[in-house]
Design a protein around this nucleic acid. Sequence first.
DNA 1: CCGAAGGTTCGAAGGTTCTCGTACCTGATC
DNA 2: GATCAGGTACGAGAACCTTCGAACCTTCGG
Lengths: 108, 108
Amino acid sequence: MSSMPGELPVPEMADVDLGTVLAALADPHRRAVVLELVAGQDTERACSSFPLPIAKSTRTHHWKVLRQAGLVRQRDAGNGTFVRLRRPEFDAKFPGLLDVVAELSTAR
Amino acid sequence: MSSMPGELPVPEMADVDLGTVLAALADPHRRAVVLELVAGQDTERACSSFPLPIAKSTRTHHWKVLRQAGLVRQRDAGNGTFVRLRRPEFDAKFPGLLDVVAELSTAR
DNA sequence: CCGAAGGTTCGAAGGTTCTCGTACCTGATC
DNA sequence: GATCAGGTACGAGAACCTTCGAACCTTCGG
């Protein structure tokens, strides 16, 4: 569990389980978010910038799931929070997974 | 829904949703089964040949989930049932997914 | 015919997930 | 200071998932 000022705690990548990752990616809302993050390279994005048709508290829940699955890192800036993929880290542990899922979500 | 003599019904591959697939693969027991099937190429295997530490009725449940996720085809031979991956079909719709997940489940 | 092996169906318990509303907090803006 | 936008924490409900046991079915081997 690393935690810097404003950084919400995330699990060590070594402790992240594949099953947890797949479960996190199974939800359409979360997959949509991850898809946008992948598309935007590893840039940081405001959490409020995702057009999810769900309540505020539900969004908070989904961010938590994504954090705990090791997919994203979240920074609290007082007003507004920001997310970014744990890109190099995640790919080191699960090479190819993010790209394949992003590819499959986009292509039809 | 195709169904031949002894073949349990499976969804059309076109109707299979990525979320459903990822959810199916999120479970450790089911992932273990899929992993073995991938390792054994696309050979058919007896359902009873998988060393799962769970009750009979629970196994039945998991086979159903895997069938409905479009991952396997199951044949009922009176005594004993048999499974095989829907390999060429599945890869056509979700290229790379099965290989990546199998790879990530094996390597550690 | 009888039993054992392999499976399905059913119902139920226990846990988890997704969802929401309400209350509350923090920074920026008026 | 009041207000607003963005978020979190908490509690609750509905739905779903995993699991099991009990009852039942079918086939094969004696």
